[in-house]
Nucleic acid binder design. Structure first.
Lengths: 240, 240
DNA sequence: CGCGGGTTTGAATGAGTTCAATCACGGTGG
DNA sequence: CCACCGTGATTGAACTCATTCAAACCCGCG
């Protein structure tokens, strides 16, 4: 809960009333181990999910095994708010780490935001941001070099995590295997490794078993033309 | 209007009442010549647009001139429904052909759908489809070869046009310069030309000054793994 | 110790780019 | 009517970035 509240707290002044409205929603808390499915291809979507903790990916696998990750889902992220109409999912969602998620029936969710304009606005913002992230992903893999792609992606994850984490350190650990970065960026694992080495040599990042540390955020953002404004993180701060 | 109605008619049974609700919306009809801007980067978004006729592109230009087209906007398409909150656009929209568009103030739009559940549902579907198109674009440029990309894109445009055009011919003209395809697919113009030649040699398409004809839709869909279900065109038909 | 998953490195290959020249074509003006 | 342009499409050759295949490596864990 706290991550979601921190998240939408960026967008609107959320009051106690709205907060309880969210909290009282009938929901189920579920957990998934790394690699377990959350939404399968072809499954009906009749609930929305909120990631309470952990990481998940939304992806599609082509016939011959090629996999493309559409986006990463971090604590505080909600999905599939768009699938609120009877439809079957055309892609899968899978846990990367251990994931705790809150499942709310679509109907309950709708009635919860019905008379709470500020909540509705907040979730609208969440959708706007989600779509902006997809657009940015298109630009990234369509027109950027491998080095730019990787740097840009790392910075996006960094900023998104910073928005929900209380710790505002400049170097944030990203516990993510290179295979995931490869499938997200449309690159081969080998080339991600090489490119990451380059970023390391140039002093932008450091790697270790726990993940990737960003050492020179500003320089890297400059190098890969990362502008965080598409994430719309510049809104009001939470005041509970 | 008719294209939009045909479009959302795919999703819900739209009645006369809803139809008039749409039609009576206070709006401005504007036109743009080829190459003229519709939405500029950094502009406030306080209206939604409906393409009445013509084609437009949504894109971003990087510092050094690289351009990535995010998606194509065809007759019946609506945007920026997501930008309904005070925000500045982080990308531009430009007319490709002569474009006629209907501009509706965000507030008017919201109140128009407020008491018309079927309309609200229809526009929800439009958003769902829009997001699905973005996801498909990510998969396309992330993990498909140039030949697959091109074929897949042509088929998507073909299907989307067929959904709003009355003519249900199997071979549809696509009046689109190769430079646009290149920037949409993340390829160079030269390589689009070569790849298109290949599609031509293999009998999938024919080209001439008026555009591109798709000759073997089924074979091409098979070759590039195109499944049209993400477009959600399999809904109810219009009954006015 | 030995196994296994993820990472790194090297060498060969390949897909797509870049540069530059040519072509096709419709429009314009003499 | 024809010469001239300009834009978009095509072709060739050299080049580059990224992939593939294969081997080595690292490290945590049973």
């Amino acid at each position: 809960m706290k991550h979601l509240v921190a998240r939408i707290g960026h967008y609107v002044d959320i009051g106690l009333d709205e907060f309880h409205g969210l909290n009282d929603l009938t929901h189920r808390i579920e957990t998934r181990r790394p690699g377990e499915d959350i939404v399968r291809v072809g499954e009906d979507v009749d609930s929305i999910f909120v990631i309470e903790s952990g990481w998940a990916i939304r992806f599609r696998i082509l016939d011959d095994g090629r996999r493309q990750i559409i986006n990463f889902m971090l604590p505080g992220d909600c999905f599939d708010m768009m699938g609120m109409v009877k439809a079957k999912s055309d892609h899968a969602v899978t846990a990367v780490t251990e994931v705790v998620l809150r499942r709310v029936a679509t109907n309950d969710f709708l009635s919860a935001i019905y008379n709470r304009p500020s909540l509705a606005t907040a979730f609208w913002w969440v959708s706007v941001q989600e779509e902006a992230i997809l657009r940015e992903q298109i630009i990234r893999i369509g027109r950027r070099s491998a080095k730019e792609r990787l740097a840009h992606m790392l910075l996006e994850l960094n900023r998104r995590l910073a928005a929900v984490e209380e710790t505002q350190t400049d170097t944030i650990k990203l516990p993510i295997p290179q295979a995931l970065l490869a499938d997200a960026l449309g690159l081969s694992i080998v080339h991600v490794s090489r490119t990451l080495s380059k970023l390391r040599e140039e002093g932008y990042v450091a790697t270790h078993s726990a993940g990737i540390d960003i050492l020179d955020r500003q320089g890297m953002a400059n190098m890969c033309d990362f502008k965080s404004n598409y994430l719309h993180l510049d809104k009001l701060k939470l005041n509970l």
